[in-house]
Amino acid sequence: MLCGTFELGRHHALLLRALPEVVHLRTRGRDDYAGLHALLHTMRHESQQASPGGDAVIAHLSAALFTLVVRTLMDQGDLQQGLLALLMDARVGPALAAVIAAPAEPWTLERLAEVSRMSRASFARHFAELSPATPMDVVTALRMDLAARLLRETPRSIEQIGEACGYTSRAAFGQAFKRVHGTSPAAFRRQAG
């Protein structure tokens, strides 16, 4: 058994809400988990040694472990609702993939349904079976996740980031950002350092 904590930060709330509260993977006797076993073995070894760079190795292996756990949950079909369930769904997944690929596009329910080759009503009904959020709420959440990342990692202006996330005015972007993150884009950038 290996215990630890993943700290993703509040800007990754969309991903965290997509995961179950408790994840328990049983790997005994399953050859398809050989990579996971090897990763855990290496993490255990690094945590017991006082080798230079050990903390960096553990941090990177932890990211890989998190990815493998999410992949395993997806493979096992344990994600019945939320963002990952939507992305895995053959009917609505293409629409969300399109939003992720082009967040600045003027997405509407009609366009999302069109990308998924469904009627607007069928798309909305099927979406509701997989997510408590509306399609447009998910579009906004994806855009705001991107906005938070751009504010933290790039020197782009707030207007440029708003445009990259599909907003034509700084005011509209600021209102949406504050509604999701609880603070203005400028304050978020200052807090992120």
Rank of each mutant, 00 (worst) to 15 (best):
A141E: 14
T168I: 13
M88D: 13
S169F: 04
V23N: 03
Y33I: 04
R125I: 00
P106W: 06
G54F: 09
R189G: 02
L68T: 08
A101I: 06
S131A: 10
M88S: 15
M1R: 14
A128M: 04
H60L: 11
R44K: 12
A187L: 14
A147V: 05
S119P: 02
R26H: 14
L150E: 09
G77L: 00
A147C: 07
F6Y: 09
G93I: 03
D32C: 08
A133L: 12
A102R: 11
T67I: 07
V92Y: 00
H37Y: 13
E46A: 15
T27D: 06
D89K: 02
L40Q: 07
R120Q: 08
Y167Q: 04
A148S: 08
R156G: 03
G193R: 12
L68M: 14
D32M: 02
F188A: 07
L68V: 08
D145S: 15
A13D: 13
F66R: 08
L86Y: 01
M88L: 15
A186Q: 12
V180I: 13
L142Q: 06
T183R: 11
G174T: 10
H60M: 11
V138F: 00
E163R: 15
D78L: 13
G174H: 01
Q76G: 07
A147N: 05
A148L: 03
R91F: 08
D32Q: 13
F177C: 00
P52V: 03
L146R: 08
A38M: 08
E129W: 08
L68H: 10
R91M: 12
P155I: 01
G53W: 08
L73E: 07
R189V: 04
R170D: 07
A172Q: 06
Q175T: 14
R30F: 10
M74Y: 10
L96F: 13
A13W: 13
S51N: 13
A59S: 10
L8M: 10
L150T: 00
A113N: 03
V57R: 11
V180S: 05
L36A: 09
L130Q: 00
K178T: 15
Q49S: 13
G174C: 01
M136D: 05
L112Y: 00
L130Y: 03
D31N: 11
A102Q: 13
A192S: 12
E110W: 05
D32Y: 10
H60A: 12
D75N: 12
R189L: 01
T72S: 06
L36G: 04
F177P: 01
S184V: 02
L39G: 04
V99W: 02
Q191Y: 12
V22Y: 11
V23S: 08
V99R: 00
Q48W: 10
R125P: 00
R149F: 09
I100K: 09
S122L: 09
H24Q: 15
V139C: 00
R189M: 01
H181Q: 09
F127P: 00
A90Y: 06
E21W: 11
A133F: 07
K178E: 15
R71G: 15
E129H: 10
A98E: 06
M1V: 13
L61Q: 10
E163F: 11
R44D: 14
Y167R: 02
A113K: 01
L146H: 02
A18R: 03
I100H: 04
W107Q: 00
H181D: 02
I158T: 14
R10W: 11
H24G: 11
L40N: 07
F173P: 06
L36T: 02
M74K: 15
A104N: 09
G35F: 11
G77H: 02
I100A: 08
G4E: 06
Q191P: 04
Q48L: 15
T5I: 14
